[in-house]
Design a protein around this nucleic acid. Structure first.
Lengths: 222, 222
DNA sequence: GGCGCTCTCAACACCGTGTCGAGTCACTGT
DNA sequence: ACAGTGACTCGACACGGTGTTGAGAGCGCC
């Protein structure tokens, strides 16, 4: 798996005290044990309710030892999110480039790829949304991801307008921003099963339909 | 000011130890002092970074005395949000009832009313969004508000469809849910001035345009 | 002058974080 | 064989936060 967005949490702002290379075998195992413990516990309760001690115990180490591997529990979550974001990008690929050929199909595939990734990593997704408020690093990672989606969408809209397929009712960037924020919020509500929310299986078709209407207006393609 | 949604935070789940009625004059003043201190401090930093001691000191009382007035700092925020929600409802009124006569105008007024309220209470809005994750009471209050918006929107869409003004491309409730979640997220991003986001003054027109396209499709009114 | 009520706070018990410093252990070069 | 080095480990601590307890102060009212 390639890490497209940032280095793993080990590279987070507070530099961890080591530069492990060719570590003793157990080292990487412990790191992975912390990560999987975090994923498990996040399935049960929020990061806020998980203590560093819980994470350490789950990985079979003491609390101080935890700090050898991660600067904080937020850094653990950051690593988890990073993996997830990389997966979302991989699943989605460069699908937006074929936009003009089959807008509805491309939109559907791209939306579904991202949504499936989030759905598949429910715990990390919900924790990420929570932690955005309190962790600068997590917020910035998320902003970078969203910004990239908005850039791609803006470009697609402008291309469609240039070839006369879509009307210019709003600035392309404003429209792209609002639509992507909608996706984020609706997907989150569905994954969190919160109220009000769209049923998990109706999310993609709902979002795609709104995108098509908003982008093409009266000229909506089949 | 009428409290439309819930009792003030005093009624929060952890019952506070008193039932104040006709209290000594200083009592209500202190309660208000805590509230205004909270509003001020939230303008500078997040609830997470504000301690009960900060709130107490700001109101000129000791920390234990704070607990005489509120069960926790979350309860203070709940009271703040409650006031804000009441204000949003008041500003907005029953505007949705005139929907069919002038969809675009009504939508614009309703969206602007809610948005202006949030914008006016920037600190409480941002704190509310943060705290939704950690406080059940705040989440439930918010869910109730959103649910009411979705109900009203669903009804408006169904009415428009019944009179043949709008096509039924999606279940009305799914559409209403997605549009309201979009509003929430886009307004939040604008108030938080986060990236990516729509410029503060373009929020309302962007949202209204997307609503009109999504609800009316090819039949968009003027 | 004693009662009940609102209101106040010092002192306490508790829990979570992050750090420090003193170790252990495996490997590497000599 | 053995000292050195760097990865790794954890007991003990300092600190900062929360929420509670118990002892009162001030006041109105009979």
């Amino acid at each position: 798996m390639v890490c497209v967005v940032s280095d793993v949490a080990t590279s987070s702002s507070t530099p961890s005290p080591r530069s492990r290379r060719a570590a003793r075998v157990t080292g990487d195992e412990r790191e992975r044990a912390i990560l999987t413990t975090a994923e498990t516990l996040l399935g049960e309760r929020s990061l806020h309710e998980i203590s560093v001690d819980d994470l350490a115990r789950g990985a079979g180490i003491s609390r101080p030892t935890f700090y050898f591997y991660f600067a904080s529990k937020e850094a653990v979550l950051l690593a988890l999110i990073d993996r997830m974001v990389a997966e979302a990008h991989e699943r989605r690929g460069d699908v937006m480039e074929r936009f003009a050929q089959d807008p509805r199909g491309v939109l559907y595939d791209a939306t579904k790829a991202v949504y499936d990734t989030f759905r598949h990593h429910r715990a990390a997704t919900l924790a990420a949304a929570d932690a955005r408020a309190s962790s600068t690093e997590i917020r910035e990672l998320w902003e970078r991801v969203m910004d990239q989606f908005v850039d791609e969408t803006t470009l697609a809209i402008e291309t469609e307008r240039a070839r006369g397929a879509a009307p210019a009712l709003l600035p392309a960037r404003d429209l792209a921003t609002a639509l992507n924020l909608m996706n984020e919020r609706v997907m989150h509500a569905a994954v969190a099963r919160s109220v009000p929310g769209v049923a998990e299986d109706d999310v993609v078709r709902t979002l795609v339909a709104i995108w098509i209407s908003a982008i093409y207006g009266a000229n909506a393609p089949a």
